[in-house]
Nucleic acid binder design. Structure first.
Length: 291
DNA sequence: CACCATGTTCCTTG
DNA sequence: CCAAGGAACATGGT
């Protein structure tokens, strides 16, 4: 579920639901998620605190809180990792197997669930300083991208996953953006022409903006458990329509015909992760190499 | 049993 | 010191 568009949709969904709610209970069921914050510290800061805002930076959710009896605001930075979810249930509902953190908000419980426990829910916000620009902001320009790619010999696909280059693109939208820009994922970053960089810059923004627009039409509370709210189905739930996958043009589409030219979409592995692309539409600029 | 999975960090190698 | 590649983290689905 978690790349920039999914996190953005989640933030928009959650914001009005938690605004001004006071935390009456904090339950930490998997301390690893808080690192380097300790469960005791989290409880000390969050008990009695009130949610004052919710925003996003890259793939992070930023919960603004005003602790009880204190002026200074605090921020909880949450990252969903691969399998993280955040949603509200009726207070006292049966907890899912992998609930890592549960906040009692009175009538509702805010659940941070994460099957693989790669996510984060922490008071440590130092990681945010290392993030590159927001891809959809004015700060992120084609010039910025060109300069960042200029001296890198890494393949462009792998480079797009670097959160210090730009924040929020993950494995799915990296493939999607390169397809849209018609650039081979194997091309070394410093070999992109100015025109290609410009196309890629535009493609990144279009792909992310489209995903957000699309995500805003998807109901967040479908799925099996009526009790739940804010579930964002990314995977292939048997009982839920595959909104997301139908819309992706290359990701997880190996063997299927390219929507532009009809060639079979190919899967390759780069930096131990799958990349999907159309070998006909996304030709490498390196002569002699057939993609 | 094998391989795959939306992510990040740490370690090794060059 | 830097860049790049790979393993590790942990659990589940196919």
């Amino acid at each position: 579920m978690p790349e920039l568009p999914e996190v953005e949709i989640l933030v928009r969904h959650l914001r009005p639901l938690i605004q001004n709610k006071t935390i009456r209970g904090v339950q930490v069921r998997r301390a690893k998620i808080l690192k380097p914050t300790s469960p005791a510290e989290l409880k000390r800061v969050l008990l009695g605190a009130k949610f004052t805002g919710l925003s996003r930076r890259g793939k992070y959710l930023l919960f603004d809180l005003r602790p009880r009896g204190r002026r200074v605001a605090v921020v909880v930075a949450a990252h969903l990792g691969m399998t993280g979810r955040i949603y509200l249930v009726r207070h006292g509902s049966m907890l899912p197997k992998h609930a890592a953190v549960v906040l009692n908000l009175g009538g509702k419980d805010l659940i941070f669930e994460d099957t693989r426990y790669f996510g984060r829910f922490t008071l440590d916000t130092s990681i945010l300083a290392k993030l590159g620009p927001e891809p959809l902001s004015d700060e992120f320009t084609a010039g910025h991208l060109y300069e960042a790619l200029e001296r890198s010999t890494q393949s462009i696909k792998v480079k797009l996953l670097d959160q210090s280059l730009l924040a929020g693109v993950g494995n799915i939208y990296a493939s999607e953006a390169l397809f849209r820009a018609r650039i081979s994922p194997r091309l070394a970053a410093h070999n992109l022409t100015e025109d290609q960089v410009r196309r890629l810059w535009r493609a990144i923004r279009t792909v992310l903006a489209e995903a957000i627009r699309f995500g805003s039409t998807v109901p967040l509370n479908h799925g099996q458990d009526q009790n739940r709210d804010g579930l964002f189905y990314f995977g292939r739930a048997a009982d839920a329509p595959n909104y997301y996958e139908e819309r992706l043009r290359v990701y997880d589409c190996a063997g299927r015909p390219c929507g532009r030219c009809g060639s079979a979409i190919k899967r390759i592995v780069q930096a131990a992760r799958s990349t999907f692309y159309c070998p006909a539409c996304q030709r490498s600029a390196v002569r002699g190499k057939s993609d």
